[in-house]
Design a protein around this nucleic acid. Structure first.
Lengths: 227, 227
DNA sequence: CACCTGACTTTACGTAGTAAGTCTAGGATG
DNA sequence: CATCCTAGACTTACTACGTAAAGTCAGGTG
């Protein structure tokens, strides 16, 4: 490897950055550490992301927002098992609209959970990537197929996306470290105490809520007051 | 105000920190700037938050997670109008369970939207504050009153919280600055193009999705496949 | 009056992002 | 072959950040 070709690329940089984030947390992702991981000086990264760290952040968000990529490569948790499906499934037979939405939701959730350390980066970035548009297209087509009137489709898609992202964050929050002095569960919260023994299976809860939301979104509407 | 009593307090520090976050963004909240805003040296803050900035962050999250506080003080957007309700409403007549949930959701959403710059701080902090427990108590009681079997109550509450937080983030994301090179809306996304003229009223969309979710959560359940 | 304590300040250090400059290899040009 | 150019990688240097440690100082207490 000659001096000035370390084989850097955006893809490789983002993958390495995500490995650092997943392993040590977002705060630990520094240009110097990233450079070290890539066997390169920190400033070399600026050649591929001339706008600096913010641009790198955006690339990371774009990466994890695309389940196809985020679920494929960067987690070598288990040894690469030989897949039952040999390669690209030749003819993905058309699934019903609700199954397509459920599948998307599960994939997106898995991608976000896998890289939950990068979640704070998503909040203030507009989802105007190709992956985001692909997801919206899937949502709109499915809800249209479900029989929603056009003017209700974008709202339904927004609700679905909101729920999935919110569920991921809810899970991540609940699994976070306890704060320095957590509030005590005492008599002020009788119902919580009564139900505190029920343990949560995040996967199950997610799917139940998802079913409820989809059912509510595609059922005949009831008007409610303005509050 | 003598030299060594600038009248600092956790409350005042957090309020000022939130003003900085709301006005200039989370990245701009530095100890020095916060000290300046409080007419104090940066290190003075460490007297009230000895564990440093992380502890300050936690206090900020606790603050905005309590709609009663977050919606009250720190936004002097409009001049303080004389309220129609004179003081603490003397006897808050009991509202039906669904109205209580809807009211909570709207208040929580408003609090988060008002301080959306602080949202990234929430993601990895466990919601174990008094305000969070109060909210959970409200949820559990309401869903129990709605007739949900006890084992489904925590899941329903989680779904509701997920939706509200997700909806706020969805809105904030959609209002963020466009990325450096946004994806083009071309023929690959026909349904999106067809519906792109529909403009979104975030408040309305939020309430519609909320109604759908509540309806789905409290309606008789239908089992779906494992995906 | 001496002393203490709590509230803020001063000084200083290590690390962060990154602007600006330097260096090297390899191709283009004469 | 000698020279120059350029893109990419590396170095230096600057500013700003979080915060440890020590200092300062008013007001209360004995």
């Amino acid at each position: 490897m000659s001096r000035n070709n370390a084989g850097l690329s955006r893809e490789r940089i983002v993958a390495e950055a995500l490995r650092i984030i997943d392993g040590m947390g977002l705060r630990s992702l520094t240009m110097r550490r990233l450079g070290d991981a890539l066997n390169v000086e920190a400033m070399a990264i600026y050649h591929h992301f001339p706008l600096g760290k913010e641009q790198l952040y955006s690339a990371i968000v774009e990466y994890i927002s695309d389940p196809a990529r985020a679920l494929a490569s960067p987690a070598a948790e288990t040894a690469p098992e030989d897949e039952a499906t040999p390669e690209t499934d030749p003819e993905p037979e058309p699934r019903p609209w609700d199954q397509r939405l459920r599948d998307w939701a599960c994939d997106y959730r898995a991608a976000l959970l896998r890289h939950s350390g990068a979640l704070p980066l998503m909040i203030h970035r507009r989802p105007d990537t190709v992956a985001a548009l692909r997801a919206t297209e899937l949502h709109y087509a499915a809800f249209t197929e479900a029989g929603l009137p056009p003017e209700e489709v974008p709202g339904a898609a927004a609700a679905l996306t909101s729920y999935v992202l919110g569920a991921v964050i809810h899970q991540v929050r609940s699994e976070g470290l306890p704060s320095s002095d957590p509030a005590v569960l005492d008599g002020r919260f009788p119902t919580v105490m009564a139900l505190s023994s029920i343990d949560v299976d995040h996967d199950r809860v997610f799917r139940t809520g998802l079913d409820a939301l989809l059912a509510g979104l595609t059922a005949p509407r009831v008007q409610h007051g303005e509050r």
